[in-house]
Nucleic acid binder design. Structure first.
Lengths: 240, 240
DNA sequence: CAACAATATTTGTAAGTACAAATTATTGCG
DNA sequence: CGCAATAATTTGTACTTACAAATATTGTTG
């Protein structure tokens, strides 16, 4: 058996969509008819269709039928990786300089973003990430003490904050905001760039068990393109 | 039947992962055992597990077993929508001013990015997108003539370029590059911002049938946060 | 003890059947 | 003709069975 039947069926439907033989809003044949056409059981057809539905290419309504989605990707996706992760992926050596690592009272802005009362205690770490000795990002992270009790015991120059935080909680919700900013004097100096050089600021908030538990602000040194992604929206499944 | 059995099983496993009862690399019981435990058929268990696999929470190996992934999202995702789409989503009125709409010879940079010979003919359109009469983005798009023969006949002030391009091809591959830039004099004037105000530049390339067919550069007026996303990585399925 | 063979376990694919639920088409009646 | 009841279609869920393929375990033998 060179390729499972359900994959053959799936790829055939996918191909018809890609070539335009099946157009958005078109109704595809019923499971029964497809099962007849391919001489397979209804279950096999069903599996192929269910996967295409979960991938967003088809939409089905009980009693009515299965239709081609007109959702020709209303958006495309950009992956935002952890800086250390990204540096390694690019084949560089990542080093971390920890500037601050403390417990402190949250200021107005931070407490608002963390959805807690102003003046509450938070953990705070500030660091500079370098790739092959060249600074590429300034990170500032805040964490809620109750969820990360051993935050202050960590050595973030050895293990990335990202790694540590990820190991302590399976996140429920993630919010990312991207903005372009001009670095202030201090950050420009740390990143060894001119104050006129624009930077990308990514602010991320994570929720765990209904509460906002971490706030991260990463300022990327402008010219270094760490935010790129390339992907295939609808790839044919299986080999060949 | 309040909730399908396969969803109950899926959510139970998901819950065990979220609470930490099941940890990364743990092996979960075999289909046979789970079917016994929940008094359902193997198929029903299989469906629950297959969905969790496709969502990236479990990994299976034939003959060996099913394991919890240690893939605690190495990246998070940002959705990049079309400007017109994004403006409507925010409840604003989108207007488009077309500055250029022509056929021309590709310069060195554009032909390199479109993977074609320098000097080849390309379609070119430049426009300013506004939200409630306030300019928010400057777009420059290049398209390969052979794939979009009626490019010049379109009225892009009525129908968005995005819409037109999407209607003509189902894309195979999408590349996005995000950078922070300082706008040049012309773009700053068009966006009605100061030259010191940093902007986000998104460059996108699309592939269709093995060839790069479109190149887009969008400069977002800095302070307007059009790049934000919020999502739940592993949401419990079904109601209740 | 090590190498190999046989066996058991586990997942992968697939057929067939059954009934429920939602939608759409059809029929019959006033 | 219009409306309501009925029938047919289509998807949703679920059970049982069957065998193949990959891996893990156990037992045997030199």
């Amino acid at each position: 058996m060179p390729q499972p039947r359900y994959l053959q069926i799936k790829n055939e439907i996918l191909h018809e969509i890609q070539t335009g033989a099946l157009r958005p809003e078109d109704r595809i044949p019923s499971e029964h008819r497809l099962a007849e056409r391919f001489t397979v059981s209804r279950l096999t057809v069903q599996r192929a269709i269910r996967e295409l539905v979960s991938e967003g290419l088809l939409r089905r309504t009980q009693g009515s039928g299965t239709f081609v989605t007109n959702f020709t990707h209303r958006f495309s996706l950009i992956e935002v990786r952890d800086v250390v992760e990204e540096i390694r992926r690019l084949g560089g050596e990542a080093t971390t300089e920890v500037l601050l690592h403390r417990r402190c009272a949250a200021d107005h802005e931070v407490s608002r973003l963390l959805e807690m009362e102003a003046g509450s205690d938070v953990f705070h770490v500030a660091l500079v990430q370098s790739m092959d000795s060249e600074p590429v990002a300034y990170e500032e992270r805040f964490a809620v003490p109750s969820v990360y009790p051993d935050f202050l015991d960590q050595d973030f120059s050895k293990r990335s904050v990202f790694d540590y935080l990820a190991s302590r909680s399976v996140l429920e919700e993630i919010e990312n905001v991207v903005a372009a900013v001009t670095p202030d004097k201090r950050i420009a100096a740390l990143l060894e760039i001119g104050r006129a050089e624009p930077c990308i600021l990514i602010q991320r908030r994570n929720w765990y068990q209904g509460r906002c538990v971490t706030l991260t602000r990463i300022t990327y040194a402008g010219s270094r393109q760490l935010l790129a992604s390339r992907y295939r929206p609808y790839e044919l499944a299986g080999g060949r």
